[in-house]
Write a protein that binds this DNA or RNA. Structure first.
Lengths: 322, 322
DNA sequence: CTGAAAGCGCTTACAG
DNA sequence: CTGAAAGCGCTTACAG
């Protein structure tokens, strides 16, 4: 049996309420009594039982982070900063890898309802139907999946547009787009929209492959693209894995980069956690993580939140553009 | 106010004990009653409050995972599998990035005492003094930091020995070792021991740099090594980041690999999460993660555990050896 | 198979 | 400033 607040109270000769007040650092405790209680706690090696206070306060101080997988540079980095930011507010982070499994998502919702966690950050979402997530403190990245779910995103449209124009100014005439299509409404689709708009603006035909794809299908998709549009001299790639696969394939095909083919990636390619020298639109992962956590905590506290936060990307020149 | 077990009991016209039994799937409930209760739960959209049952059962079903950083391929992969395995046993994982901060470690210990988590996996440890971690369900990877802390490791000594001999058989005559020294007792030191033993066995002088180093100091350490032992024609590198930095530096220096210089790495280098073609001793990360979780759960349950589990590495040939 | 009751270890009005 | 008491929402012997 661990020592409880009762033991401490008895030992210190005070009421348990007083001990509680000391634990919670309330000012309304006399210096004398406080000292007595502190000593008793030390003497008895007392640790307050968190489960009990959780129950009383109805808060767990835990949030869940749902990502597709953790062992992926983008999500790992995100997880890192989410944890760091949460910690600043006294929250812990439970990590959940959804692994494309839809149930994981509804599972988190029930965990909120069961009061296992106070709220959740959704980085993926497969839910199509509007669930009964009223009052559920949930926030998200890139995708709006409910009217009451605030989210953080980056300036997908503008950044893509800018990147494409950059490429075209450097001589790209046959510009393609390759991406993996999100399953649900997502700001990521803004990239495609930007691409199509730019093509229209320059009167260029669209060379696009943007399909829903499973992890592992990248190679096939890239092959498909390369076959369809063998003549491209500039490509915008959306997404990490795809970027890497595309770059590798392009190099293997014997194309000179950037002479024959310019490449710009949204997200860049990570090489040992360092963005390699692909020209890319870099998302402010740290800032996205911190903002999304702050949003969530506001929601948990019942404060007003901004429903859509757009953060600026950085355009990083690499060696894959002229 | 959320609906509680009381509401359900009243609605179903049964006692709260019965509702509890239904929730927990106990067999000792009549078919009739069970149905009534189930219906009531559905009708009232009841979710059992986990905090309350935690308090009663004195378990949180949460474990903590302490890693130096998550956004590093090794730890991210580990985190992924730890989460996956924990999930199978009905446990959630709280992620803690220690970031070299010693307090984080003792903090977790208090969190166990405070019953915020049921146990913890320590992948780093800075603690020198034996803490009062009796009865604390803690397990660890690679390093023994207490007599009662079971851990999982890989066959550091044998694998290193084998790798070095492989290199020597392919003609390496001036063999060096470069590593970052752990702060505390760790099985990682077995690699150095293996190196020294092999050198002794072959009558070769040791060319070694194995210092305690901070993240970010790798470049300087590699430079130091290269200057001291400019003539090496075979090097064993211990650790991810170091391997990558070393490989890059070696290439930049104009050395032909593997002609002028053979390299073998413990851990390999990750390129976009794919081990690149460096010859390496690969740790069975997934297996280590799963084993360590199972160890922890046994400890939590108070079962007997094996105090040291050694898993086999794989020797993977790449293009950095002849 | 089922209900009434005690109790898990706290927090928090309430009264003094 | 402090204590006694109620209660957070469950689980679990206990008795039937």
């Amino acid at each position: 049996m661990a020592t409880t607040i009762k033991d401490v109270a008895k030992y210190a000769g005070v009421g348990i309420g007083t001990v509680s007040r000391v634990i919670n650092n309330e000012k309304a405790v006399g210096e004398r009594t406080r000292k007595k209680v502190m000593d008793a706690m030390k003497e008895l090696k007392y640790s307050p039982n968190n489960m009990a206070s959780q129950l009383r306060k109805n808060e767990t101080r835990i949030i869940a982070l749902l990502v597709p997988v953790v062992n992926h540079p983008f999500f790992a980095k995100l997880a890192y900063y989410v944890e760091d930011e949460a910690d600043r507010f006294g929250y812990s982070v439970i990590l959940v890898s959804s692994q494309q499994r839809v149930e994981k998502e509804t599972e988190i919702i029930s965990r909120i309802k069961r009061r296992e966690v106070d709220g959740a950050v959704f980085v993926t979402h497969y839910m199509h139907e509007e669930q009964d997530l009223e009052n559920c403190p949930i926030v998200s990245i890139d995708r709006a999946f409910g009217k009451n779910i605030p989210y953080v995103t980056s300036d997908n449209y503008d950044a893509t547009k800018k990147a494409l124009k950059y490429m075209i100014e450097r001589g790209a005439k046959k510009v393609g787009y390759i991406g993996s299509k999100p399953l649900v409404d997502s700001e990521v689709m803004e990239r495609e929209r930007a691409y199509l708009d730019v093509m229209a603006e320059y009167g260029m035909p669209a060379r696009i492959v943007n399909e829903v794809m499973q992890h592992g299908e990248e190679t096939a998709v890239v092959a498909d693209f390369m076959e369809k549009y063998a003549d491209v001299d500039g490509v915008f790639v959306s997404g990490y894995t795809l970027s890497q696969v595309f770059q590798d394939t392009a190099i293997e095909s014997g194309k000179k980069i950037p002479e024959d083919l310019q490449i710009i990636s949204y997200d860049g390619v990570f090489r040992q956690w360092v963005t390699s020298h692909i020209t890319s639109v870099e998302q402010p992962i740290e800032e996205m993580a911190r903002q999304v956590v702050r949003l969530l905590i506001k929601k948990i506290r019942g404060e007003e939140t901004c429903s859509r936060t757009v953060l600026k990307t950085r355009f990083v020149l690499g060696s894959t553009t002229k």
